[in-house]
């Protein structure tokens, strides 16, 4: 009774006090967040209804940018390539990281840590440095892929990896994979450490093989981690840009054109801001829908 009267007589004053101090603490962050994240997000949607370029006022054109977008052949190619990248890299990244994590998490702590670092290296190295060395490795004449391929008898003659529409996208995906498994491995190792040990032991007592214990006991417990990994990997794959810009510029003949690179090309090479923004909006909607679907599927399980 006494506690109740305290919690009902003080709140108004307390809530106001707490709200004022809270916002004072939030102020520095909110300043940056609103100015450089929320406002541009809003402007991205807003400007997509305008014909916007450098050095003149934006002209309102309604849904013209979107109409143009759906009629743009290159956009559909870019969308198709982006979907290929996502559909290949998301499952492969997830499965590969789960496997690596399950192997290295059984090692002594120091060894786990070494392997975790190694798989994280390509992320830390940075996309520019990584891209440059891969470009050299893929090179038609001096690259080690062609050297090893021809000398080991796998290839008949040198392949122009990045210059051939048949291989270019695959080459990009391979680099993307090496730069995207780092974070999922870290997450899976920690998720495997946090699995309820008593359940695993109980399963072992009941005669479950370690394989069964993994899929029946550990895997369901790691579902939230898997969901998170699926979503971040998907977002990263959708945003694949540096590799394309530095290696192929979308070519040869649009075979590596992705939405992100096409946005960049339209906005920063042709200065067609409104059109670029419309594409950005569509990209964000696609990502939001796919995330929601993944959430739903995961929630049902």
């Amino acid at each position: 009774m006494n506690t109740k009267s305290i919690s009902t007589s003080r709140p108004r004053k307390l809530v106001i006090h707490e709200t004022v101090t809270s916002y004072l603490f939030l102020l520095p962050f909110l300043l940056f967040f609103v100015l450089f994240v929320i406002y541009p997000m809003f402007m991205c949607v807003f400007t997509s209804f305008f014909d916007a370029t450098m050095g003149r006022e934006d002209i309102f054109i309604g849904f013209e940018n979107y109409k143009r977008l759906f009629a743009d052949k290159v956009f559909w190619i870019a969308l198709k390539n982006t979907m290929i990248i996502v559909l290949v890299s998301v499952p492969v990244t997830c499965a590969f990281s789960l496997w690596v994590a399950s192997v290295i998490s059984k090692m002594p702590v120091a060894a786990t840590s070494v392997f975790r670092c190694i798989f994280y290296l390509p992320v830390v190295t940075g996309s520019v440095a990584v891209t440059m060395v891969w470009k050299w490795m893929y090179n038609n004449y001096y690259g080690i892929f062609n050297y090893l391929g021809t000398n080991m008898g796998i290839l008949d003659k040198n392949i122009n990896w990045l210059g051939d529409p048949k291989y270019a996208l695959g080459c990009i995906i391979l680099i993307l994979l090496t730069t995207s498994v780092g974070q999922p491995i870290v997450l899976y190792v920690s998720a495997l450490d946090n699995v309820d040990k008593s359940l695993v032991e109980a399963a072992a007592v009941d005669g479950a093989t370690s394989f069964q214990a993994f899929w029946k006991v550990k895997w369901p417990q790691m579902m939230p981690t898997t969901l998170y990994i699926l979503i971040i990997t998907m977002i990263n794959s959708f945003q694949c840009f540096a590799l394309i810009q530095l290696l192929t510029q979308g070519g040869p003949s649009n075979s590596t054109m992705t939405i992100m690179f096409y946005i960049y090309y339209n906005a920063f090479k042709l200065f067609d801001y409104g059109y670029g923004n419309a594409m950005g909006v569509i990209l964000a909607i696609i990502i939001a829908i796919l995330s929601a679907i993944q959430f739903k599927v995961a929630a049902e399980k």
Binding site: L26, F33, L35, F36, V37, I38, Y39, P40, M41, M43, C44, T47, I231, I235, F238, Q239, F241, M260, I263, A267, F268, Y273, G276, N277, G280, V281, L283, A284, I287, A288, S291
Partner: peptide, 23 residues
């Protein structure tokens, strides 16, 4: 505010680069 923070994190960061440059 918290919802806004989480939503912002789930959106592709690079999409806002065009308005950001103009800003």
């Amino acid at each position: 505010l918290f919802t806004l923070v989480v939503c912002a994190m789930a959106l592709p960061k690079q999409v806002i680069l065009i308005p950001l440059l103009r800003e």
